[in-house]
Design a protein around this nucleic acid. Sequence first.
DNA 1: TCCCCGATTAACT
DNA 2: GTTAATCGGGGAG
Length: 192
Amino acid sequence: MNVLSAAFFYQDHLSLAKSLLGKILVHEHYGKLLRGMIVETEAYHQSDPASHSFSGITKRNAVMFGKPAHAYVYFTYGMHYCLNVVAMEEGIGAAVLIRALEPLEGLETMMKRRKTDRTANLCNGPAKLTQAFGISKAQNSLNLLSPPLYITQGRHVELKSEIVSAPRVGIKKAVDVPWRFYLKDSSYISKK
DNA sequence: TCCCCGATTAACT
DNA sequence: GTTAATCGGGGAG
């Protein structure tokens, strides 16, 4: 089913953020198959003051500096988890935050976890999709090349006509840097 | 050790 | 538009 291989993830944070749009995130969790198309991402890099990796490697962000194609899951605001895909070669702190998905499979499980029956409200935010997909600390540092957590090819996306770039959400540094990317016509993104 | 605040969300007014 | 919820990371002292 066209699982993306390691070579795909050896891109810089910006091209990986755009390349991931239209791809399918899959989580095989407690016997359930959860799938969603990536419709919104943000890029982060060690040269960027808004990035966790900006101040160098620590216990928390070490995965960001590790090999690409791994999951960097962090805990924030005392209650939320966010999922990143590590980019670039080992030694460089770069990753792509997955901000929103279009739910494709396993909707009943997602609805139960999110306590809503509105499809558009299941995965339209970075902490919403980790809740819907059952992603938490346990998934931090997991390899994204095989079950239980992996990414498949998905649909073709026209780079210039379908992707919008904009400033990132919820940060206080580098607020004007347009490193948020989303599918222009998707109704599953976190914010207009 | 203390203290501030965050790559958020939902429930308010 | 405003704010509570809730806790770990990390800089300051």
